[in-house]
């Protein structure tokens, strides 16, 4: 038996909205430590890794490890039926072919349940090594969203370079060129408005803007986003989801011929 209850149901709604265009389907792996998902997009260019800790839920029970095959478009349809203030409970029997979602309004006067048909999905897990990155940048998630949105209107790829001067995003296209540089800035009083640049060594990598732009659909989940860069490795774009866990997007760089 699997059962997970979260008072702040809107978090689940936002998570699925952030993922559903990138990955159409994937397995929710549940165990007594929590719920996780690792899924690649259809072209295997990027990977989503979601980790929700057992103690981040208001109630969590998982008697047997299970892989629940989810079609995210269908899960999104069901979660759209939940109110933003609703408590959401996920439930499944062992080896079930459906996941039950129960929505409770805060006033307790409206309770609904939906069953989502589960799929059987063959998924290949990739081992992601713990890594020291050359540059780690924490910035407001709204700032990240603005940068990738603005640059997407100019070009297809972005060169991200981190130096002691700051982190620079450069692109070019038919219109012309664009450069946006952010500097380390801890002046704003609110920590979520600050920009932290932790540079071990200068690094520069090129990425497809379409994917970086897609990752910013996770903006409503967290006030800050962390970008991690190392030469010849995928960039990590990470959103901390409060005390519940995190969603990480990995994007393979462009490689010179």
């Amino acid at each position: 038996m699997f059962e997970a209850r979260i008072t702040q149901g809107s978090v689940l709604k936002k998570l699925v909205e952030a993922l559903k265009e990138l990955v159409t389907e994937g397995n929710f792996d549940v165990s007594n430590t929590g719920l996780s998902l690792q899924a690649m997009d259809s072209s295997h260019v990027c990977l989503v890794s979601l980790t929700l800790r057992e103690d981040g839920f208001d109630h969590f029970r998982c008697d047997r490890n299970m892989a629940m095959g989810i079609h995210f478009g269908n899960l999104s349809k069901i979660l759209k039926c939940a109110g933003n203030e609703d408590t959401i409970t996920l439930k499944a029997e062992d080896n079930a072919d459906q996941l039950t979602l129960m929505f409770e309004a805060p006033s307790q006067d409206r309770i609904s349940d939906f069953d989502l048909k589960l799929m059987s999905i063959e998924s290949e897990h990739l081992g992601i090594p713990d890594q020291d990155y050359s540059a780690e940048v924490k910035l407001p998630s709204s700032e990240y969203q603005r940068i990738v949105r603005d640059l997407t209107s100019i070009g297809d790829t972005v060169l991200i370079s981190a130096t002691k001067e700051g982190i620079k995003f450069s692109t070019s296209g038919d219109v012309g060129t664009a450069n946006i540089t952010l500097r380390h800035n801890t002046t704003p009083e609110k920590p979520e408005e600050q920009t932290f640049i932790d540079l071990k060594e200068p690094v520069a990598l090129t990425f497809a803007l379409r994917y970086l732009n897609n990752f910013s659909k996770a903006t409503p989940l967290a006030p800050q986003v962390k970008l991690s860069l190392t030469k010849d490795l995928p960039i990590v774009v990470e959103y901390q989801v409060g005390e519940l866990g995190s969603v990480r997007f990995y994007l393979a760089p462009k490689i010179d011929d």
Partner: peptide, 14 residues
């Protein structure tokens, strides 16, 4: 022109 790398090239299957 740069080619798009794939995730499988960077991380190995478990």
């Amino acid at each position: 022109k740069a080619n798009q790398g794939r995730m499988d090239t960077f991380f190995t299957a478990l």
